[in-house]
Write a protein that binds this DNA or RNA. Sequence first.
DNA 1: GTGGTCTAGACCACG
DNA 2: GTGGTCTAGACCACA
Lengths: 128, 128, 128, 128
Amino acid sequence: MFQLDIRSRVPIYEQLVEKFKELIINEVLKADEQLPSVRQLAKDLTVNPNTIQKAYRELEHQGYIYSVPGKGNFVTPPSAINKEEKVKKMKEELLKLLAEALFLGVEKEEIISLIEEAERTVKGGEKS
Amino acid sequence: MFQLDIRSRVPIYEQLVEKFKELIINEVLKADEQLPSVRQLAKDLTVNPNTIQKAYRELEHQGYIYSVPGKGNFVTPPSAINKEEKVKKMKEELLKLLAEALFLGVEKEEIISLIEEAERTVKGGEKS
Amino acid sequence: MFQLDIRSRVPIYEQLVEKFKELIINEVLKADEQLPSVRQLAKDLTVNPNTIQKAYRELEHQGYIYSVPGKGNFVTPPSAINKEEKVKKMKEELLKLLAEALFLGVEKEEIISLIEEAERTVKGGEKS
Amino acid sequence: MFQLDIRSRVPIYEQLVEKFKELIINEVLKADEQLPSVRQLAKDLTVNPNTIQKAYRELEHQGYIYSVPGKGNFVTPPSAINKEEKVKKMKEELLKLLAEALFLGVEKEEIISLIEEAERTVKGGEKS
DNA sequence: GTGGTCTAGACCACG
DNA sequence: GTGGTCTAGACCACA
């Protein structure tokens, strides 16, 4: 299910966060869908349960999932994500990255085609 | 000369690497120019010499400078730097960020205006 | 009758306790009135009977209801409920929250207008 | 230094978060002051280092402290705390608590005197 | 020395 | 069964 790079400099739990965000953004995991249980995923990935916990907790902090103790972890419906603050940070980050890309000689047209590519992967998540 | 953010999460040596890369790409530091000596820079920035050493080693590893034992560290000519790999990573990162932005409801038009804003900040620094 | 938030972090039994306390303080449930039976309520709310039991036991512990074995659970007359302790805790909590608000730069006037807003929502429910 | 209630229902790390927030709000811990090291505090409180870590991490998430790996954890200057979002949540919480207090028969005057008491403990933190 | 991550394994609350 | 917390102890990166 996941490909973790155990040797990478980026922590396992952070890799997990990224993977899950991707799945949620691309709606592979749909609203209110249940995520794999902490123990099960830990077993599948041969990682310690604490590490999974940490990833889930971080995802919850970022608003992408919510946790119901005794029940499981579930995907937050996009409409319920607190966007304002997140969008602001996102724009700053985007601006920085765009400047860097232009600086390295990436053409404006290339970036626009990247936007279109991104649109295709998201499709339908921007309604709310 | 440098503004280091001691508070930042990103390690000092990495901040140094970024700064030097900027100076090199902008040709503030010209081809084959000698970099400040480890000891001198460490003194100027009130940073541990080990930290400077680490930054220089990393710059060398990434191909931005070359080291001549007993002489010092020198700038690799920009034409010799391999940008391809960096551009590729940048595009991947951009794609991910763009998808996230669209997911959070940022309009395509907004992103395009961000590109234009980014263009303005870069203009003038991209002589190389 | 009840709106339970299955998603919430606060346990269902605790939500039940809060709801019942509200109904009792508001005298929607009058003194010595009988509460719904554990089985019936569990069925109505599609909740595990154990959960209802736990809520009732907790309400009894806090003094809001009393249980007559073989008969059912009944509302303690409001006059017999000890509010003092609760008011004390409430004040401590308020003090903490007020300090935090002031620290974050909320103006005193804003807080007073919040009090007035709160007054309006309570008006009409405080017959007891 | 701290009084932890090991038997309490509220987790140790959360108790720590509350204590530290209090110390920061009341300016016992001043801006950019260093917090006790994870290991040291763990030893002093005879708690596992991981638990301290968790508390510090949470405080960082909430914006009250910042962490510099290899250096330590430091108090965020009030001016640098991202307040907007926090203030919004705070007001909601305050409103709820105020309504509950009024409901329980706490007088408006009492609340206002609580504000004044809170003001005295904070004194000077609301400038920015 | 510092913080950050991770494993191994335990116990609790909840439904 | 689920998530949440905690201990014990290890290793790494950084300054």
